[in-house]
Every structure is written in C-alpha cells, then in structure tokens.
Design a binder for these strands. Structure first.
Lengths: 127, 127, 127, 127
DNA sequence: GTGGTCTAGACCACC
DNA sequence: GTGGTCTAGACCACC
C-alpha cells in the first residue's frame, strides 16, 4: 500500500490555468496576473508562483514579454490535449475509487445518474 | 483559490480499512494486523498506525484487546453508512472536477461509458 | 488483586479542564492556553497536551481554530453530566476505600463530619 | 499543576496487607504466603514482593523465620495507627476532590448520604 | 504566533 | 508477543 501525497502547489496552479483555458475563460493573447499579484492573491510563496509560470512557459502555455507581462499562448491542439489528459485522469481515478468500494460497471453509471439527478433536484429546491 | 493538501496518513489508513470492510474482505471478529506489523508493511511510523487504530476504536470500527490485538467490530449499519458516505464523496469529487473541465451532465455520462468500454476492450486485448 | 496504575497525563489534563469548567472558572468562548504555553506551564511534552486538547475537541468540550487557538465550547448539559460523573466516581472511590478499612455506613459519615470539623478548627487556629 | 503518579506496586502490596490486618482478616501469628507464592498469585516480579516484605519487616508488621516463613507480628497500637493514618488520607483526598468540583461542606455530606442510600437500594433490588 | 502531522525511540502493562 | 503512553523534535499550514 502506498499513500497519496499532495500535489505540489505549483502543479495545482498550472492545473488551475489549464482548466480556465479549457473552459474558455482565458484565451490566447490574454494577460495573466503578474507573479507578484498572483502570489498575493492566493497567498503563496512567490517562488512557487515563479516555478509554475516557468513551467507553463516551457510548455508554451504562456509567453512572458519583458516589461509587459505574461500572456496566454496556447494553441487549439494543446487545449484539446489538456482536456483529454485531464478528463482521462479524472475518469481513471473515479473508476478506481468506485471499484475499491466494490461497485461494478453498471452500478457506477447508475449511481452517477442518481447523483446528478439528486443534485439537480436540490438546486431546483433552493431556488 | 484553495490548494488541496494530502489526506493525513492516519486517515488514509482508516479509509483503507473501511474499503476492505465494505468489500467484505474483513469481517466482524477478524483480527487486523498488529500495529507493529502494519507499520512495517506500509513503512510508516508505529505511532501513526496507532493513531489510526485508536480513531477506529473510538468510532467502534474495531476493538482492541491489550496483549492480544485489534479486532473488527463494525456492525452492518455502520458499513452501509461508510459505503454511502465514501461513494458520495467520490461522486461529488468526480462531478466537480468534470464540471471544472467544462463537461455537462450528458457528456459526463457519455465519457464514463466510453472510458469503461475502452478499458474493457483493452483488457480483452491484453489477454 | 489488581494494582492501580496512574491516570495517563492527558486524562489528568482533561480532568483539570473539566473541573475548571464545573467551578465556572472557564466559560463558553474563553480561550484556553495554546498547546505550547500549557505544555511549558505544566512541564509536559507538547504532544501530550495535543492529545488532551484533541480528545476534548472530539467530545465537544472545546473548539480549535487553526492559527488562533482553542476555545471552550461546552454546553450546560455537558457540564452537568461532567459534574455528576466526576462526583459519582469520587464518592464511589471514597466509599470503597473506607469499606476496605472496615468502616460501615454510619462510621463513614461520622468520620467525615469529624474530619471537616477538625479541618475547620485548624483553619481558625492558623488565623 | 502536578500530575499524580501511580503508587509503586510494593507500596500497594503493603497497603493491601495493612487493610487485611485492619479488617481482622489477618491476625498476629498468621503465616502469610511466601514471596514466591505471592509473586505468582498477583503476577508481579518477585523482587517487588521482596521489597514489600522487607519494608514490612523493618516496620515490624511481619517477622521472617528462616525456613518457616513470614508471620504477622503487628501489635494493637500499630493497627490503630495504620487505621487512623489510612482513614485520614482517604478522607483528605475525598474532601479535596469534592472541593475541586465546587462542593461545600454541607453538600459533601448530603451527597455522601444520598450515594449510600442509592447504593443500598440498588443492593436490595438485585436481591 | 497558532494547531496538525509525523518520525524515532523509550518504557510500561498485559499475555 | 500485544497495545498504551510519553518524550523529543522536525516540518507544515494558517494567521
């Protein structure tokens, strides 16, 4: 048995940007906050933010322009790849956890449908 | 934005036992490994294991007998509650993550079905 | 014959707080010392204090707020139960010990009255 | 604040003999078990028993006769002193504990009477 | 500063 | 062998 360690914060930051790109909240050319701003907002060590930005730059997710800031530079195929990778890992984790609780394939789908319905009903109630 | 910290090891240990109970691998009256044995097996400090065992005792999952060991004492209703709680939290996490990737309800279910089929096909291939 | 072991220190700490609550020296919302402060004051390892504080939290005697401290959160019925339980156990121990010395019910009460009078007389003398 | 340590076992052994003397279960001239027998019966290290016996010999509670065993040799005045000392310490502990729970003199006596009555009623019920 | 987790290791009681 | 308590001290997250 192995224990799950936390994702390093710089990875969580990168994932957060990936998700915003995937959802279309950030688009090519958009300026993202400066490292300093971002570090203050999420109350994290600036070095951690620096590492996240650096890695995003390496994989061509963003581009830094001296004196101007950091800008999104992700092309469409990159976004598609992100989306697929992240979805796949979420799905894999979900299926593995549900299996470890003893649910089989059919139960999995049924439970998910029930959960979504219950959630929707709840949302309507609270309106 | 908040960052996810890892679950403490002692909680992961508890969850591991909960799952084994849920799957029926452990039954009422079964002896679980001694604190030292378990600590060695999972390569964790015995104090951490003790904390997990003690918390399981407090919630009546197990009973410890001095000098003898620790024994499962979970009743049926407890197991049902564990199963439901854990399933719900796995489902909630899954739906939240998939939403954060921009998938809606219908897509969620479709993707899950596809994933399960792909996984099954893969299993058949490797045979 | 069985031998009496000492109460674990963490339990003695809990009992100390229970008594202070019972006597009204601590009230709902009061901040109790930080784990480190308390550990230094009573010259005990901080881990031992933490265990006491954690157990008090589990039984809803106190609430801990990360980075802020630990606060009393005992409701009235809890206090009444504590008082009754502790009084009962003190009484039971007293009667058992006196019985083991061969005193019967009437003697017990007489001796107690004499003891209290003697103590009072002493106090007056020393003034 | 100081924490209560356990009474050393050899003292608990001595106190046990004192109580039996006080209650008249042991009388002058009676043979008490050999150190070996006693150690086995109460499952204690023989060295501990030896210490208890030695201290009882020093205070003239018992006498050891080579090759014959250990015999009670407590005179009446000694018994009276034991009884008074032990009673006093039990009383002192009781009063102190009850005070620490906030009970005053009158409440102390009333609670004791109530407790004794409740106990008696219970005993009659169970018959 | 606050509390939370974990390791390392000692010593004890009970079997 | 078993579990229970405690110390010493590190490192982390949150304030």
């Amino acid at each position: 048995m192995d224990f799950d360690a936390a994702q390093p914060i710089y990875r969580q930051i990168i994932d957060d940007f990936k998700k915003r790109l995937i959802r279309g909240e950030l688009k090519n050319g958009d300026r993202i906050p400066s490292q300093r701003e971002y570090a203050e907002k999420v109350r994290v060590n600036p070095n951690t933010v620096q590492r996240a930005y650096r890695e995003m730059e390496i994989m061509n997710m963003v581009e830094t322009v001296r004196g101007q800031g950091t800008f999104v530079s992700a092309d469409q195929s990159m976004l598609a790849a992100f989306k697929e990778d992240m979805a796949r890992s979420v799905l894999a984790y979900f299926v593995e956890e549900m299996n470890s609780l003893g649910f089989n394939k059919a139960e999995l789908i049924r439970l998910l449908q029930e959960y979504l319905q219950a959630k929707e009903a709840e949302r309507n109630d609270s309106v």
